[in-house]
């Protein structure tokens, strides 16, 4: 009984944390599934979203979540331009070239963060950042709950976009068969730019909620990229539901691993789980 009530906290926290992980992973998964690029700058784009929220809060003085009204279209534009002017051109040479360009973007972003905001740890300290409420025996931080709610909302929105609009069906067509998509009259390069734009807009959302949940530094992007990669392969490529389930599984493995083996073993347990699951189901939980 005491073990069960002790476990309640890591279980609830793991599930909620999984929400944040799945928002971070969603954009990575989308570009991976559609454009077949491994965007290793995705973590840094997420942190760019965190700094965007930081500027909104500390300089402009508006709530970081509210600032996403500007942040989402702005980041969409940045992502669209990255794919259109950099990656689509590299694409014609080879997929390796896109990987190197993404790596370059990653380094440029990290160094820019250091120059502009110094290597100090920052956080989005809003009035509600530290608020929590009690649910039975446990205390739940409000932002953790927001993470999961927003993850579900974002995924629902993305799913509807991909299912119901011409653009969404075009994105899925291009992901399945590039040549056939071109024969349908789809400008696949434009579809890739749109996809990267959506992915970067998702990074803005992820970044703001990450900043509300954890402190971040200019190099935080890399550790969240590693988590997101684990979530993407665990969930199976191109599956939205899979990304949520995998995000939660990853969050649970981390919090329960921390509970049983200590904080130092959190990532070890989470990644061991990823490897074990992949050994059993190589295509991931929801993979096709």
């Amino acid at each position: 009984m005491s073990l069960l009530s002790d476990l309640a906290t890591p279980i609830v926290m793991g599930i909620l944390l999984g929400g944040l992980y799945s928002i971070i992973a969603l954009g990575l998964s989308l570009v991976f599934g559609v454009v077949k690029e491994i965007n290793i700058a995705h973590g840094d784009l997420v942190i760019l979203g965190s700094y965007f929220g930081f500027v909104a809060l500390t300089i402009v003085g508006i709530d970081p979540i509210l600032s996403l009204i500007i942040g989402i279209p702005l980041f969409f534009g940045i992502g669209f331009a990255i794919q259109k002017y950099l990656l689509n051109r590299a694409f014609r040479i080879s997929m390796d070239a896109t990987l190197i360009i993404a790596f370059g973007i990653s380094i440029i972003l990290q160094n820019t963060f250091q120059l502009v905001w110094t290597p100090l740890s920052r956080g989005l300290t809003t009035s509600y950042a530290l608020a929590s409420f009690s649910a039975g025996p446990i205390y739940v931080p409000l932002v953790y709950l927001l993470d999961l709610i927003v993850a579900i909302l974002v995924m629902f929105f993305l799913r509807e976009l991909l299912r119901r609009t011409y653009m969404g069906i075009a994105i899925r067509s291009a992901a399945q068969d590039r040549m056939a998509a071109q024969l349908m009259g789809i400008n696949t390069n434009r579809v890739y730019a749109l996809t990267f734009g959506i992915s970067t807009a998702l990074a803005a959302v992820a970044g703001v909620f990450l900043g509300l949940t954890f402190p971040f530094t200019p190099v935080s992007g890399m550790s969240f990229l590693i988590i997101a990669l684990g979530v993407v392969v665990l969930g199976g490529l191109g599956s939205i539901a899979g990304t949520l389930v995998a995000g939660i599984a990853f969050g649970l493995a981390q919090t329960l691993g921390g509970y049983f083996f200590g904080v130092a073993a959190q990532m070890l347990v989470a990644y061991t789980m990823v490897l074990v699951v992949l050994a059993v189901i190589p295509r991931g939980i929801f993979g096709r």
């Binding site: 069906i169 899925r172 067509s173 399945q176 068969d177 040549m179 056939a180 096709r288």
Partner: peptide
């Protein structure tokens, strides 16, 4: 050639 329909649509 081969039709190339989109299998997962």
């Amino acid at each position: 050639e081969g039709g190339r329909i989109f299998p997962d649509l």
